[in-house]
Design a protein around this nucleic acid. Sequence first.
DNA 1: CTGTTAGCGCTTTCAG
DNA 2: CTGAAAGCGCTAACAG
Lengths: 339, 339
Amino acid sequence: MVTIKDVAKVSGVSPSTVSRVIANNPRISEDTKKKVRKAMKELGYHPNVNARNLVAKSTKAIGVIMPSSANVALQNPFFPEILRGIGSVIHEAEYSMYLSTGETEKEILSEVQRMVYGSYVDGVILLYSRINDKVTNFLREQGFPFVMVGKPQEHDTEITHVDNDNVRAGKEITQHLIDMGHEKIGFIGGSRDLLVTRDRESGYVAALEKAGIQECEGYKIHTEFLKSGGREAVEHLMSLSTPPSGLVVSDDLISLGILSMLESYGLRVPQDISLVSFNNVYLSEITRPALTTVDIQIYTLGAQSAKALIEKTLNKNEPAKRIIIPYEIVYRDSVSQLS
Amino acid sequence: MVTIKDVAKVSGVSPSTVSRVIANNPRISEDTKKKVRKAMKELGYHPNVNARNLVAKSTKAIGVIMPSSANVALQNPFFPEILRGIGSVIHEAEYSMYLSTGETEKEILSEVQRMVYGSYVDGVILLYSRINDKVTNFLREQGFPFVMVGKPQEHDTEITHVDNDNVRAGKEITQHLIDMGHEKIGFIGGSRDLLVTRDRESGYVAALEKAGIQECEGYKIHTEFLKSGGREAVEHLMSLSTPPSGLVVSDDLISLGILSMLESYGLRVPQDISLVSFNNVYLSEITRPALTTVDIQIYTLGAQSAKALIEKTLNKNEPAKRIIIPYEIVYRDSVSQLS
DNA sequence: CTGTTAGCGCTTTCAG
DNA sequence: CTGAAAGCGCTAACAG
C-alpha cells in the first residue's frame, strides 16, 4: 500500500504537506501542489479511509436500514427504487452507504447498534416506520443522527422524517372513486403496524365521512403479503351480502395479488369492480388493467432523506424537520364510472 | 467516546490487556477478563472499527455492486431478494456491507475504485455479469478479491462466480413447452449484453435443435425493460405470418409485461399462447395466470456468493471456483397442452 | 499471565 | 508557505 509518506518522499516534501494537498489547502503553493499531485498519480496513491476517519472522527458513511425481511414484503420494488434515490445523493456527496438487512427486529437492532457504537457511520436512514420500534427508540436515546422515511409514531417534531401526505393522498384517491359514482368502497391494507398503512386508511375513512357514506362493517381488511396474495381478503370481501364496488389498496404489490384473486372470482376490473392503489412502481403500469395509483415519488423520497441526513451529520444542531414529498395521482385503467 | 484506555483505568489493568480480552485471548486469566468486561459494560465501551481496521489492515466489510440503474430494470424484486441472501451471511459473520448503486458504468466504476483504493472493503460482489465490463476488468487487474453472481464473460476459471446452469435451465424449460406439444416457440430476452440472457437463450436454441425444430426467423427478440413493457416484442411476434404458440421469457418481470400485452391483443394465456419464464420471484405466483417458471433460488445465490467472498478474503490464495446453484422448475398455469 | 512500546496512515496544532 | 511532532484508538511484538 502506498502511503502519504511515499508520496512525500518522491515529491520531496513533508507528509503534512501532502496531507494539505489532499485537502486542497489554499496555503500551499500551486507549484508544490502540482508536484505532489504528480507524485500521487505516479505512485497510484489513494488515501486510506480508516486512518482518515480515525482522526477525523467522521466516516462520511451512512447506514440504511431495511425493514425486517422475514416475509416476502421486501421483494417490493419500492426498495431498489428508494436505494437508487439514496445512492444518487450519496455518490454525489462522496459518501458511502452501509446496508443492513435483518430477518428479525432483534437482528436489525444488533446491526444498528454495531453501526453506531462502532462508529461505522455518521447517521442512519430508516426505510420504514412502524409502531413500538426498538430501533427508533435506540437511535433516539443515543441521540444519534437519523432520518426516517415515513411518519414517526411519536416525537414527530423531534425526528427528521421524509414522507408523503399519505392521509391526504388516501383521501384524494378514495374521493376519486366516490366521484366516479362508487359508494361501497373497501380498503385493503398491509400490516397495521406500519404507519403508512394507518395514514392511508385514515385518508380513506375521511373521504367516506366527508361524502356522508357510512363506513361499512367488514370493508376494511389488513393482509400480510405472505398470505397467498390476498386470497383471504378477497374471499372475505366477496362473501359479504353487499360486496364493495371499489377498492382502495395500500400498495401496488398487494394490488397485483388482489387483481388476480378478483379475476379468479370471475370479477373483472374495472367493469365489475374498481381498484386504486399506491406507489406507482413500474409494475403498476404493466398490470392488466394498468393501475390508477398514487405516485409517491419513491426516488425523491430516498434522495431527500439522504440529503437531510447528510446535512444533519454535518451540523449536529440542525433542527428536526418534516419533509413532505408531493404525490400525484396517475389515472390509468382500473377505475370505471358507475352510473 | 469511551476508549480502551478508559476501560483500562477503571479495571486497573493496561490497555493491551483490555485489547486482549476483546480478542478473547486465552492467555488472560478468567478473573481479569471478568473484571475488564464488567468495566466495559459499565462504561458502555465499544471498539472503534476504524482504529481496529487501521492496524488490522482488514475491514470485515464487503462491497455489493448493483448493475447500472439508469433504467427501470433495477425495480426487479431479484435485487432485494439477493441482498437479503447476502445480508444473512454477512450478519452471521459479523461483517458489514457497502452498497453501491450507480446510474452509469462510469459512476459505478468510480465507486468501486474508491472502495478498493480507499480500503473500504475486503472484497466485492458483482450482482450482474455483462460483456466488456470495465468494473470486472478493473477488479481483475487489481487482483482484488471479488465474486460475481452470474457467469463471467471470460477468464471464468480465474473468477469465482456463483451461478445457475442457465443453459440447462433454458433447455429444460423449453423442452417442457415442446413436451406439451409446442413447436413454434419464441424467445423474449432482456439485454444481450447480459450473460444470463445469452445463456438462457442458448438453452432455448439447444432444446429446439435437439427436438429437430427449425429455428424460425424473427422468433428471437431482445427487449429493454423500459420499452413499454414489451409492447414492441409482442407486436412484432404477432405480426408474423405464423406467430408462436409458446414463449420462453428470460425474466419474470418481463413476463408480467408480456402477459398484459398479450391480453391487449386478445390472446389468452395459456389457452391461445403458452409462456414460461425465469426467476420465480414472488410476483410470478400472483400473476394471472400464475407463471410456470424456473426457480433459481435467488436467496441462495446471494448467500453463497457472500460466503465464497468471505472465504476468499480470509485466505487470499483460495482457488477460484464456480459454484452452481441448482434450479427447479415450478409448474403453474401458464402452459397448456397442445393437441 | 500482564505491561511497555511502537506504530498503522492520516490530520492538525505549533513553529518558523 | 512548509516542516516537526503529537495523537486519533487500537493491536502486536517484546519483555518480564
